[in-house]
Write a protein that binds this DNA or RNA. Structure first.
Lengths: 343, 343
DNA sequence: TTGAAAGCGCTAACAC
DNA sequence: GTGTTAGCGCTTTCAA
């Protein structure tokens, strides 16, 4: 691969001039400019990104930490992040923690601040302590899907009102006439879905429904499947199941199918998020949509700002920790919910 | 972030010694070794990967080119690639081409050889010419899912016998007694599923079935859905649908549902690949499994070899282009196929 | 066993 | 306008 100096030699100028031409810095005469461009072309020169990163003291990549790329939500989110990142010339390195805090920390240790100049964190089971460490080392961190706008996490974040999402789900089911509703709370391990469930319970309370069955589960189709079966065995009179995420909701639909129940005639099912599969399932899943693309955009731009300001003044950043709030979740009614029918 | 020299100063040695300690190079006295390690710890030193990359002349990352991370096959594959890559200390940069050759080329131009020292290519709609260019610039390239073991592509690759996959699918359906089978051929644009369809047709021919309906479609659930509806409208007597990929097969199942057909009683449906969703759909999808994890492993290790040898002797590599062949695809019978029933 | 020195490819002052 | 110079943080000969 040709280097800057080779291009310079070829064009009869110095490396600095080539650099100037390439980045439109400093004044360069039109004729030399042409000569340089020709040389670049002739040699097929491409800047060495690692060298540039070293010289500039900043890297052209952002790291995106996810718990598992196998959960279809994350690829969707990653795609949105990538699109947003490209607008500022950033590449995205996707880091799978596989729900393992140690793997997460290892990634942070290695790439934060050296290969990437900023870190985006989704529910990746990371220790906040580790995140604070990388932040204190000068690499900005943004939490992408903070679930409680009213309780800032002490780290820059984009918050989504997930309590509201749960409430909207509960209201929808109540309005259809359901009173015996089972709940599946995903992300058992991290407990990150608590706000969603609280919102759901709030809705029930407001309607005078004082209790309901709950089952905690893994945030997967399989997890939802098992939980739904247990719920339905424990109380065959359930007319609806609310899951805190689309994946377990999909699993609940499968469980219904295997139990000979028709959705929504025998059992209504709904989730939260509106991943692509929600649209593509049969029956199509009713859900509360979270503005994924918007969140990705907000997160990337917040991270960008933090990066810029971190180069401005030294130090771990200003005193107040910024938080962006996404537009509220919205109910999306599809085919998996309907009025209850007595069984 | 502390640098090597700071650690060195702290330990009362020179940067070279610290470097030696960190990489177990050169002989270092046990006592200095300890002192250095302590300093590393005390300062929280982490090597600057970009600087190291520059000094070593090689990057710690691999690029994985995919057409769309929204297609659930790719995340699964990416995960397998990431796992394999980590064993050699490589990070993976996932590059979404979004089926656009220009985006693909832009990625190649920017990161190949500068941010990443090797490129893994899945069906990302890349021009072979572009791949040859990056190869000739000294960055090894490996095609991950070459569909025709008998027709080497002129680029290092891992081949999977997809013709056989199609044949196995055809045979399975024939053995169940199906004779009127519709086919959905995915990846319309790239034509990359041709071998699968050929295998399917071969199986039909061998059984004396001379014609069948085909429909080309996008490699998505939606694409399969539309194609299946058209197929079923054109010939309501179809008793089975074979799709060259799981995603369109899933779409075909949805189409059946919307048309009031029960799978598999009224219509058998099957695909190829065995993505996770195939297991998780209702009914669970019969398919021909491709050894995804194995392919990822083979691809990464081949790429690693090419990288090593490219540092050994200069030049674009040896004359013979290596090809690894995965173990053969295997039929996985689940619940979406059964014996035909006359309608 | 350790240190000195050069250089990876590029950028950024600053001088000419 | 263009060249000179000094690094960015690390590795790696080669001397000592």
């Amino acid at each position: 691969m040709p280097t800057l100096s080779e291009v310079a030699r070829h064009a009869g100028v110095t490396p600095a001039t080539v650099s100037n031409v390439l980045r439109n810095r400093g004044r360069v005469g039109e004729s030399t400019r042409q000569r340089v461009l020709e040389a670049v072309d002739a040699l097929g020169y491409r800047p060495h990104l690692a060298a540039r990163a070293l010289a500039e003291g900043r890297a052209p990549t952002l790291a995106l930490m996810v718990s598992s790329i196998a959960n279809p939500f994350y690829p969707e989110f990653a795609l949105a992040v990538e699109r947003a990142a490209r607008t500022s010339g950033h590449f995205v390195i996707i880091c799978n923690t596989n729900e393992d805090p140690l793997t997460g920390r290892a990634y942070l240790d290695q790439i934060a601040g050296t290969l990437s100049e900023g870190v985006l964190v989704t529910n990746a089971n990371l220790q906040f302590a580790d995140l604070h460490v990388t932040e204190s080392r000068g690499t900005p961190v943004v939490l992408c899907m903070w679930e409680r706008p009213n309780e800032p996490p002490g780290l820059p974040c984009v918050a989504v009102d997930f309590r509201l999402a749960g409430e909207l789900a509960g209201k929808h089911l109540l309005e259809l006439g359901h009173r015996r509703i089972g709940a599946i709370v995903g992300s058992k391990a991290s407990g990150i879905h608590a706000a969603r469930y609280e919102g759901f319970v709030d809705a029930l309370r407001a309607a005078g429904v004082r209790k309901n069955r709950v089952k905690h589960a893994a945030d997967t189709i399989q997890g939802g499947y098992s939980a739904a079966r247990e719920l339905l065995e424990a109380d065959p009179q359930l007319t609806a199941i609310f899951a805190t995420n689309d994946l377990p909701a999909l699993g609940a639909m499968h469980a219904a199918a295997d139990l000979g129940l028709t959705v929504p005639a025998d059992l209504s099912v709904m989730g939260i998020t509106d991943i692509q599969l929600a649209r593509e399932s049969r029956p199509a899943l009713t859900t509360v949509a979270v503005p994924t693309v918007e969140v990705a955009g907000l997160a990337v731009s917040l991270l960008r700002e933090l990066i810029e300001s971190s180069y401005g003044q030294a130090g771990p950043g200003e005193a107040n920790v910024p938080m962006r709030i996404s537009s509220p979740p919205k109910l999306v009614v599809r085919a998996s919910t309907g009025t209850p029918r007595s069984r």
